[in-house]
Design a protein around this nucleic acid. Structure first.
Lengths: 210, 210
DNA sequence: GTATGTGAAGCACTTCACAGCT
DNA sequence: AGCTGTGAAGTGCTTCACATAC
């Protein structure tokens, strides 16, 4: 239903940043913004912002700029954020617990509805108020809880296996915290959060005084 | 000292991934690898891997491939990973504690040596065996502990202020977990880890059955 | 006057394809 | 025979610049 001829992936990745900046502006009471101003906030060029938005429609008014409330509405719709998404967390170690307790998902419409682990000592216990399920029942539970998105926070050695199980269970969007280059089939979306890689690429610039 | 004419940033960001894959291969006992094989592991084309490496030298042997031990050595040197880097964690909430306790930094040569918070109830306490310092002494402590890299895990509302203080204290590499688009001056390297943005861009593809 | 939307130009990264080394 | 290293070609994203609308 969404009109989307052929949007570069980088563009899609910037939309949530626009969304966030606009939300903050709205909270501050501002009603209109120009691509110039938004660019200054996000360190992007005005042209880039206009071009990015133009992939999806014509949301601005020449001579005035963008109505923030209206643009927010459109961006939320485009990104599929008008609904709630149910999320599962797989791996309930320290990191998994921190993720479950993170207060930043809920306000954006991501609800962590179930947790999994393979450690028999954890199964049946609670983590952040959430029942920890046996990972071997993963398909069944994910279907029962209507989960669309999984967050993987298991050790690297187990991550590919877990991801395979998630794919098998029909999950099409996975956010992985595991330090591995995981493989997923065509059509499944995988994003990685990997602080070590980030640090390791920054040290290049610290060591090489250009 | 490092020969680096003009290396694209994307290339620098891929090197740590090569490093990690090669480490795993070495642990498995393999001694030589071709760009073909490495590409298969990382879902990259052989040409890209060869081109990336060629920015830094000629590390392969035609007809054979790359000696893993040698290439690892060179990559570690290029990325500045032959030394240890001291890291400070600013913000000792749930996330900060998880970061301090994370066992993945140490083996890669990143030592979390001090922690900061602004909450008077936390200052002077321990977190993961680390003394929590008052953030107002940040410059002094960072110098004393010889910290080169900072990880920011404070709430969004405080993040820009904290980052300004870090920059003021001479820190040139910052990894931020805060959900804001922070600004840093030229010459300071800032990377962000932001799971919400990742989720929000994946939902686009879940909602748009292209 | 002011700011958008957008073809066209510019730039940067990726891939090709092959000479050259082992 | 096999695989690297690399100019050249290809591709895709970014920026420009201006017609258009308010």
């Amino acid at each position: 239903m969404t009109y989307s001829p052929d949007v570069p992936e980088v563009v899609v990745q910037r939309l949530p940043q626009y969304l966030r900046a606009l939300s903050n502006l709205q909270r501050g009471g501002q009603e209109v913004i120009s691509s110039q101003q938004l660019g200054a906030l996000l360190q992007a060029t005005p042209a880039q912002i206009r071009k990015d938005l133009s992939y999806f429609g014509r949301f601005g008014k020449q001579g005035r700029g963008y109505n923030i409330r209206h643009l927010l509405e459109r961006l939320r719709y485009i990104l599929g954020l008008e609904r709630t998404w149910n999320v599962a967390v797989v791996g309930v170690g320290r990191l998994g617990r921190a993720i479950i307790s993170y207060q930043g998902f809920q306000p954006e419409g991501f609800r962590v509805v179930c947790a999994f682990d393979s450690d028999p000592r954890l199964i049946g216990q609670l983590a952040g108020g959430l029942m920890i399920h046996d990972i071997s029942n993963i398909g069944e539970v994910l279907r029962g809880e209507q989960v669309q998105i999984a967050i993987v926070s298991v050790p690297g050695a187990e991550a590919q296996l877990v991801i395979d199980q998630l794919v098998e269970a029909g999950i099409q969007a996975i956010l992985s915290y595991a330090p591995i280059a995981a493989h997923v089939p065509e059509g499944v979306h995988l994003r990685s959060v990997d602080p070590v890689l980030e640090l390791q690429s920054m040290t290049y610039y610290l060591s090489t005084p250009d």
